[in-house]
């Protein structure tokens, strides 16, 4: 089993699939598939995610072409600074004087 896991990845490239369900909605991530090239990726995505209808448009992009944050980025990128609560929109809504919420 371990030798199997050590084998190099001989599968086709991994592609991420985004689909749009109606004209005015954004494309959203549907999943990922393997494919030999872009046209093949569209066809495979169509078979897996779009065959039952309700799809207006499909995007595919090689997973490796997506720039993403790494787990190490978590703290500097995403964690709020605890001593600067005013950076959060909630800070203001919580502290607004009650009378501001009342009708004039």
């Amino acid at each position: 089993m371990s030798t199997h896991l050590q084998q190099p990845d001989d599968q086709w490239d991994l592609w991420e699939v985004f689909l749009q369900e109606s004209q005015n909605e954004p494309h959203s991530h549907a999943g990922s598939i393997r494919a030999a090239d872009a046209e093949n990726a569209l066809q495979n995505a169509r078979d897996l995610f779009a065959r039952r209808g309700n799809v207006k448009s499909l995007w595919v992009v090689r997973s490796r072409d997506i720039t993403a944050t790494t787990p190490d980025d978590t703290v500097p990128f995403f964690e709020p600074t605890p001593d600067k609560v005013y950076r959060h929109p909630q800070f203001y809504s919580y502290t607004l004087p009650d009378e501001l919420w009342k009708k004039p």
Partner: peptide, 11 residues
């Protein structure tokens, strides 16, 4: 030869 093509041919 690959899962995706298996699905394509079956479709």
């Amino acid at each position: 030869p690959i899962l995706e093509e298996d699905i394509a041919l079956s479709n």
